[in-house]
Amino acid sequence: MQLISHSGLATWLDHLAQETTLIAPRNVDGVLLYRPVQSSGDIVWDFVRPVLSVKEAFFPATERVLTIEKTGQQIRLNETVPDGERVIFGVRSCDARGFLAMDALFANTEPVDVYYTTRRENTALIGLSCNEMGETCFCTSTGGAPDDPTGMDLMLTEVDDGYAIQVITEKGAALLPEITLQELAGEIPQPVLNDPVPFPPMEAWPPQFNDAYWADMAERCLSCRICAYVCPTCRCFDVRDEPLPAENGSQHFERIRCWDSCAGEVYRQIAGGHNPRAAKGDRMRNRFFCKFYYYPEQYGPVACTGCGRCVDACPVNIDITEVMHAVQRLAEVEP
């Protein structure tokens, strides 16, 4: 395995920032986010994880799907598929693991989503291992690890004299700096792990569907949906048309899609008012069943990477690991 020195890495990232769009963890008004950087100096190095997952670089909070030009009775549509190559540096393993779930739906289930897959094809991921897990992290309980290279093109791990570089894909190899890298002497240090939380198997879930637990645990939910917005795998969206400024006697609109969440009160409400999930307990139950039962049943991967963001973000301390504990307990009582 090869080694890149701290200064060598900075030079390489500066070069990438010149050559392409380089996205990395940076401080935006006090909030750590994956955002384009101009040089390695913009990058934050000491962090657990950005507030929003790297999902937003592929499936943005709001994105234009098409534009609409209306002139009298004439309509013209313009497809707005994203372009431009990008490199994302500093990707955490939990976020890259989120692509297992996202790809399964958007890229590997027909019809493919052209917006998401185009960005996936045009983007290379350089991972950065965690030396230790954050307080609310539980990636090792959902199949991952702090240094798991799954989904990365290159994986960097900090060592004494710099960073060890693992080449995962050809896309990653093509990014490597043109300078000669040293060979790494010795082993890559092992990350410090948190105690695992129980991971109830799929068959543990359906028997708990009608349990009183859901209404009880959801009582304090504010239906604010932050859990879905910070999640690397939540992918529900809304679609609507918004006006753009008129031009040359034509009306212009954009059709956008934006994140949404099954925790929201009117998520399932149809025109006319009928709402099959009006109760908070039904909505929270759907959220957790989706993560650990519906999503794996529909597409294969579990829709939780153990990143812990929802645990940190919830204003009323709803904790997904407590739900995992509870379902495990219920399954043991009534298997």
Binding site: L105, F106, T109, R235, V239, Y267, R268, N286, C290, Y294
Partner: peptide, 10 residues
């Protein structure tokens, strides 16, 4: 099948 909205169970 993408927006997730219309699920009834799985």
């Amino acid at each position: 099948g993408k927006c997730g909205r219309c699920n009834m169970g799985e």
